[in-house]
Design a binder for these strands. Structure first.
Lengths: 152, 152
DNA sequence: TCACATTTAATTGTTCGCAATTGAATGTGC
DNA sequence: GCACATTCAATTGCGAACAATTAAATGTGA
């Protein structure tokens, strides 16, 4: 009976989905680390490169909206990517408030080197693609509901 | 057809479960923030308090194993909790290498004030308890598989 | 006993992540 | 056209997160 109560106690760490998500994010990060080290990227930098590989020459704000990050995070990160010669930052001539982020040739070339990353992650997760897709969709739906609550 | 290809492209941001987990963790953090501000805690500090509310007077290492965090993260965090008079750090007399973390009366008392936090999160997630429990179990299983790969 | 490895926490340095503020550029309402 | 608000990036300050190293305490084998 005491056991049953404790498994239902919402204040117990093991019962909290949020801790599951938090600790899973760290676990993913640790799996990615050796793969991304070879590319000279951190995980958030890799996310920015994924955005840019999809579409280039975009303002900082667009990147922030896709990744849910603000300029306080992105400005220094993008400066590091620029220092690594992967992107170029230029003020937009139409709207001088915006800084446009464009890939350099090296930045474009890195996409090929990064091609094997997702399948390495898939292998590490020891899960079928369809299971992962289902989980991903559930987590995204939860995330979007949470973000909707924040936006109120 | 082009659409179908892009929904299967593993190099696309939207197709990556890791980004789903990463961004969901941040969304949770933003929901927790106003709730925890009232308690004077950050989310990682709240996790440490959850551990201590379950069992008190434990070495730093035990906390680290439960939260998957190392001393580089925990030492300064615990010093901040000590500065806030929520915990006390004392060297173990049996094993002088260990630092034992104990709750102060204020630390114990905070548990009552924190009691409403989980249900606020539940409300924000707009999800049934059973759905959340199922998701949590899936995510924990994935996390544990990832951590097993790292340990090799 | 004594050399040696292991365990544990602390420290240092780098990178995120975000709140709050600043300052410049742009848009608006009158 | 001009005061005013809004938008956008940059900056500052603080708190994680982790790799790598250090130093002290403990355990182990010969």
């Amino acid at each position: 009976m005491a056991r049953k109560l404790s498994t239902l106690d919402p204040q117990r760490l093991d019962n909290q989905i949020c801790f599951a998500v938090y600790s899973a994010a760290h676990a993913f990060n640790r799996v990615y680390k050796p793969l991304l080290d070879r590319l000279g990227l951190t995980y958030p930098q890799y996310l920015v490169m994924l955005v840019l590989w999809e579409r280039d020459d975009v303002p900082v704000k667009d990147i922030g909206e896709k990744l849910f990050l603000d300029s306080g995070t992105l400005t220094p990160l993008l400066k590091r990517l620029e220092a690594a010669h992967l992107v170029k930052r230029t003020r937009s001539s139409e709207d001088e408030r915006q800084v446009l982020i464009a890939l350099t040739p090296q930045g474009h070339a890195l996409k090929e080197k990064a091609r094997s990353v997702p399948q390495s992650i898939l292998a590490a997760s020891e899960c079928s693609v369809s299971e992962l897709v289902a989980m991903k969709d559930e987590i995204v739906a939860l995330r979007d509901r949470l973000n909707a609550v924040i936006g109120e």
